[in-house]
């Protein structure tokens, strides 16, 4: 006689067995169970502090004692639009935009190479190369760049060896982007921002290019499109979600950073520094909060515009 397995195996013993059976029958309850803690975290801690911040921006400060006056007022927002503060906003947003555009331009070919041609070991090398800078301390990187860009730094030395000092000097003579040396110019700030945030652009662009089948590119060429046309009509539109995702990183990270422009640059404040200066050192939380609302607002507008442009259609 052969022993046959029962059609229905017995219940698992104990409350755990009971629980898994009933959870299996009520998948919605399971979902609720899984989602509640993160939602609470997000809702209370994150949104809560965001709204508290927003509320702070409607307070004002007694400038002498540094104590906060909790009467709702728009005074702080008016202060945001005095020329010196407006300069900070414009400076920061322009820098963030330039960094984002440059990051996209640099990231695209790198990501394209990685997605199309790199296989096996090369792919590993690529990921390592992209991720490696992310592992080292942010401050170490920034200080390293200070040494690279300094007047008596590595880059200047190299330029001197190449007998190109005249070219660098001519560049540094230029208004706005120039300065006494790269390390005290907007160009220096820009280069360091670009370096530090580049991985955040490359990875999403690479992910989006990876999802474009090779046959689409061949099809485009087959239908008569020269490589430039293929780039414009096929690759860029399909990589757009990745570029937008990456630009959200590079743009918002640049908007919020306060370390890089303090170490590399011309001492002109960026939003992050203004926030730091007003809340950390001057105790002017309302103005700091008002400054902080600006990037939040800009990112909101940016995401809305990106959605309207169809950047997320292919997701």
């Amino acid at each position: 006689m052969t022993v046959q397995a029962a059609i229905v195996s017995p219940k698992r013993v104990g409350p755990a067995g009971e629980l898994s059976d009933s959870l299996w029958r009520n998948p919605r309850f399971l979902l609720l169970l899984l989602l509640t803690p993160p939602l609470l975290w997000l809702g209370v801690i994150y949104l809560g502090s965001l709204f508290a911040l927003l509320a702070q921006s409607f307070f004002s400060i007694d400038e002498f004692s540094g104590l906060i006056n909790r009467e709702p007022t728009l005074k702080t927002y008016r202060e945001l639009f005095v020329p010196a503060n407006l300069d900070i906003l414009i400076r920061t947003v322009s820098m963030a935009a330039m960094v984002t555009i440059a990051a996209a331009a640099v990231a695209f070919p790198v990501a394209y190479f990685a997605a199309r041609y790199a296989t096996g070991r090369w792919k590993a090398v690529f990921y390592l190369g992209i991720m490696l800078p992310l592992w080292s301390s942010y401050l170490v990187k920034v200080y390293a760049w200070k040494l690279i860009l300094a007047k008596e730094g590595i880059l200047n030395w190299l330029v001197g060896k190449l007998h190109l000092t005249w070219l660098l000097d001519a560049y540094l003579q230029a208004p706005l982007i120039g300065g006494n040396s790269l390390s005290v110019s907007y160009t220096g700030t820009f280069l360091v921002f670009l370096y530090v945030w580049l991985p955040f652009m490359i990875l999403p662009v690479q992910a989006s290019l990876e999802r474009v089948p090779a046959s689409l590119i061949e099809a485009s060429g087959d239908l008569g499109a020269a490589p430039g046309q293929t780039l414009r009509h096929v690759l860029l539109p399909l990589a757009l979600p990745g570029i937008v995702a990456g630009s959200i990183f590079t743009f918002s990270l640049t908007l919020g950073d306060y370390i890089i422009p303090q170490i590399i640059g011309s001492s002109r404040l960026f939003i992050g520094q203004a926030v730091y200066a007003h809340q950390g050192t001057a105790g002017n939380i309302p103005l700091a909060a008002a400054f902080t609302v600006v990037p939040v607002l800009i990112m909101g507008i940016y995401l809305y515009a990106a959605k309207r442009l169809g950047a997320f259609d292919a997701l």
């Binding site: 502090s49 965001l50 508290a52 911040l53 702070q56 906060i68 918002s252 919020g256 950073d257 306060y258 939003i271 992050g272 926030v275 730091y276 809340q279 950390g280 939380i285 700091a288 909060a289 400054f291 902080t292 990037p295 939040v296």
Partner: peptide, 16 residues
């Protein structure tokens, strides 16, 4: 968004 978080915590301290 570092700055937001920073301002948020600072604000909690102020409230206390």
């Amino acid at each position: 968004m570092k700055s937001i978080l920073k301002a948020g915590t600072a604000m909690a301290l102020i409230l206390s």
